[in-house]
Structure formats: structure tokens, C-alpha cells
């Protein structure tokens, strides 16, 4: 059901607001937020350097187009593959945990940025310039399809035995191992799936933007937004990261247009307020009582309390 609703809403997007660059970027953020959802929501590893996979996907697909003249679909596949290869290379970081893991991924993404930005074969100096392989409408349709397929993956991760293993690892890796869960393999698979999603997102971004310099794909704010969107909507859910990305990125666009002079102030305050009062994300409001914030439970209790008559 959520898949149908999300697909229908995104498909109707252009008839409500015909800025396809905005809508395509929104779907790209949904993909990234779902990547964060899988790696953080289900395994507990917060990847601050998640943008590295996004950048790897961008350069993997772009270089395939430039050097091998591949088509758009193959470029998306190769973008995802490049990100997976990058994830394999940095997978030893999974031995770390907490802040150490977050910072190590950040350092890895920056190392990748410096390599790309300073090599001539990656066009780090002159900037990348790609032919336009898809019309804006076709690219948006493609990105909506990617979102729907991603949701299928997340539903599987949530409901399958594999997802159960991930949650067991998140709660207590040692106990999970003693219960027979292959901790290293399970974590690594989740890590690679998340990287592949970021790679697809990166390839779509490259096809949309087509002219860019290395500092844009590896901008750390992309990581921050993906994490904030996932947390705001609610991790460990299918719909949470979608809601987070749609609401916050739309607000981002709205404030950026209506009140550009107060942009950072309004957006920053909004996030602070939301994190303070909705730490479990928006979807926690409709979850079980244990998931809801205390103030929301009080409101609900007061409304549903029976009238006391003498």
C-alpha cells in the first residue's frame, strides 16, 4: 500500500509543481535517505561520509559515459557498481562503531573527493561535461521507478529474516552472534545495498546535472540532509524517510524562494524544534504508544478520556 501511495504521489508531482529539477532532486534525496535508513536505521551505523558513495556513483556513471559511451541505463548500473566497489574497499570501517565509524566514513569520503578533484582523467580540474541522455521528464519517470523499487527493497529488509538479523545486531551484536547470526556478513550486505542506492542516486544526479565540478557531488551537506531527512521522517520504517525528504526538502525549497534572506535561520530553527519534539520522527506519531513522544501521548490521552459525570 505505501508503495502505491508514494508512487502515485510522485507520479502526480509534475502536474502540481512543474519544476522537474526540484522533483528529480527530491527523489534523489529519497533514495539517499533510504540508504541511510538501511545502514543506520537497521544496523545502527551512522555514516556521515555517505556522500562518498553518492559521489562514487556520480563519477562511475559519468566516466562510463565519457570513456565508454554507454547509454543512460548502463550508466546508472555502472554508477551503482562503482559505489558498491567503493563500499567493499571501505568495508573494514565496519569494525569501528559509534562516533569512530561516523568520522572514519567522513574521512574516507573526503579522501575520495581529493582523488577525484585532483586527477585529470576524472576531469577534476576542468569539470565534467556530459551529453544530455534523457529529457527531464524521462529522467523524472526513471527516478520515480527507482524510488518504488527502493521501497520494495526496504520492505524486504524490514519484514524478512535478513531484516530481523539486522535488528538483532543493532540491539546487541554479541547476543545476535551467539544466536547464530553471521554478524559480519549481514552487516556487510546492508552496507553494500545502501551504497548501491546511493550509487543509483548519484547516477541520476549526474544525468540530470550533466555539468559539474567535483566539489558539488562530495559536498558534506548532502550527507547531512540525507541523515536529517531519514531521522525526521523516522528510521526503521518504509515510509519515514520518504515523508522526511518530501516535507523537509519541500520546506527547504519553499523557504528558499519565499524568504531567502532568513533561509538558514528558519530552516535551522525548524530542524531544532522538530528534533526536540519529535525525536522518533514524524512516523512515530502514528506508531505504537511506546514509539510516540510523551507530549503526544498526553494529548491523545486527554482527547480520548471519558467524561466523568457525578
Amino acid at each position: 500500500m505505501p508503495l502505491v501511495v508514494v508512487g502515485a504521489v510522485l507520479a502526480a508531482g509534475p502536474s502540481l509543481y512543474n519544476n522537474l529539477a526540484f522533483l528529480t532532486t527530491l527523489t534523489i534525496y529519497i533514495l539517499l535517505a533510504q540508504g541511510v535508513n538501511i545502514v543506520y536505521g537497521f544496523t545502527g551505523y551512522l555514516p556521515f561520509g555517505f556522500v562518498g558513495f553518492f559521489g562514487a556513483g556520480i563519477y562511475g556513471s559519468s566516466l562510463a559515459i565519457v570513456y565508454w559511451h554507454v547509454g543512460g541505463y548502463a550508466a546508472i548500473g555502472l554508477g551503482a557498481l562503482t559505489s558498491v566497489v567503493a563500499a567493499v574497499i571501505v568495508s573494514p570501517l565496519l569494525r569501528l562503531s559509534g562516533a569512530y565509524f561516523a568520522l572514519a566514513t567522513l574521512a574516507a569520503s573526503q579522501a575520495l573527493y581529493f582523488i577525484v578533484a585532483n586527477e585529470s582523467w576524472t576531469f577534476g580540474e576542468s569539470g565534467m561535461s556530459l551529453p544530455l541522455l534523457f529529457s527531464p521528464t524521462a529522467l523524472y519517470v526513471l527516478s520515480v521507478v527507482a524510488v518504488v523499487l527502493t521501497l520494495v527493497v526496504v520492505v524486504y529488509v524490514r519484514d524478512s529474516h535478513f531484516g530481523l538479523s539486522l535488528r538483532a545486531i543493532r540491539s546487541d551484536a554479541v547476543s545476535a552472534a551467539m544466536a547464530g547470526v553471521n554478524v559480519v556478513r549481514t552487516r556487510t550486505i546492508a552496507w553494500l545495498v545502501a551504497a548501491a542506492l546511493a550509487g543509483v542516486a548519484g547516477a541520476l544526479w549526474a544525468l540530470m546535472t550533466s555539468a559539474f565540478y567535483a566539489e558539488t557531488p562530495f559536498d558534506l551537506t548532502i550527507s547531512v540532509y540525507a541523515i536529517v531527512f531519514a531521522l525526521f521522517g523516522g528510521v526503521r520504517t518504509v515510509i519515514g524517510p520518504v515523508v522526511g525528504a518530501v516535507v523537509l526538502y519541500s520546506l527547504y525549497q519553499y523557504i528558499g524562494i519565499s524568504n531567502p534572506q532568513y533561509f538558514e535561520l528558519i530552516y535551522g530553527l525548524l530542524i531544532v524544534v522538530l528534533v526536540l519534539f519529535l525525536p522518533g520522527g514524524l512516523t512515530s506519531l502514528v506508531g505504537g504508544r511506546g514509539d510516540r513522544p510523551a507530549w503526544w501521548n498526553r494529548v491523545v490521552r486527554r482527547r480520548s478520556a471519558p467524561e466523568v459525570t457525578p
Binding site: 512543474n18 519544476n19 522537474l20 529539477a21 526540484f22 532532486t25 540530470m208 546535472t209 559539474f212 565540478y213 558539488t216 559536498d219 551537506t221 548532502i222 527547504y252 525549497q253 528558499g256 524562494i257 531567502p260 534572506q261 533561509f263 538558514e264
Partner: peptide, 20 residues
Amino acid sequence: YNDQSDPATATTLYNQLLTQ
């Protein structure tokens, strides 16, 4: 519009100028 030095934001805002 203010793009805040962010090329990704600039992409959607350039498009805003043309489409909206």
C-alpha cells in the same frame, strides 16, 4: 533567489526561474 553557494540548490532555483 538565494542559492547559498550550493550548486544543487542552484539547479532547482534556475529551473524555478524558467518553469515557474
